[in-house]
Amino acid sequence: MTKIKNKILSYANNPIVKREIKQTFRKAKIFWILAVYLFALAGISFMVLTSLSGTYDGYNPMLPSVMYFVILGMQMLLLTVITPISTSTAISGEKERQTFDLLIITKTSMYDIIMGKLLSSLMITVIMIILSMPVYAVVFYYGGVSVIQFLLNQVYLLCYTSMVGSLGIVFSTVMRKSTAASTATIALIFAMTIGVWIAIGMLGVMTFALTQSEVPLKIVCTLFMFNPIISFISMVDSQMGTNASWEILDEIGYTFENDVIYFWHINMLLYCVITHFLVKFAAKRIAPMRKK
């Protein structure tokens, strides 16, 4: 317990986190980003609210759930775009500013330097989550969404954002220029989300053309394991009581005895594991004595 407490304290006292937060909030840019984020979120919610309200004479029972998942989906999309842009400059930005060498000769470990960069971008995510509360408040006004479910979904977003952020940091250690690192990160995220669907579609067409049969479902499901869109569908399932993602899991041999664990729960753990390994990899990449 003391070890965990000390670990949390060390993260809280990470000098890179403190410095990045100070610098970020002294620039006007962050406020514009937050404003655009909030405007986009609120704007979409308003459009959903007005279009759904208009189709019913009285209260539309679908309204709160649909609004909730539209806001959540929009939040996930915005974080997918914003997070890599900030983390992909983590290391390449330091090199461009010629501050990198002075960082790595200090007594702070490479792992703590990378974690500091990741945590400072996650702080922005937390602020965005807090800022979106008033928008979600409209949903809670109508009811139908549990607070526990909402909190769990936000924890999922944090895990997802940490994975996306750590991908950005890895590219930042590999590529010299920040723009190249941002582009590569967004391209990989695109491949993980939309790209997988396109690949499966193309694979299906080719398989059918050659063998007159479908792509084996196990291959499809394995590819979908890492897909954030499937994960999102699974979150919708857990709220709405549907089981689209369960059926996929069942096909590949995972049968759950109860309805406590959903696909997105597994994904959340997977994202944490991926983040851990990506951070370790990035730390090894920047370790100075490896330079030959």
């Binding site: 006292n13 990470n14 000098p15 890179i16 403190k18 410095r19 100070k22 610098q23 002294r26 620039k27 500013r97 010629q98 501050t99 060498d101 002075l102 960082l103 000769i105 200090t106 007594k107 702070t108």
Partner: peptide
């Protein structure tokens, strides 16, 4: 170490700059 070319951080005061490196050390 003080290199021949070095950068500094925008939007950071002189005392904060030293505090940052004190934390790093």
């Amino acid at each position: 170490y003080m290199p021949d070319f070095f950068g500094t951080y925008d939007n950071l005061r002189a005392d904060e700059y030293l505090e940052f490196y004190a934390g790093m050390y």
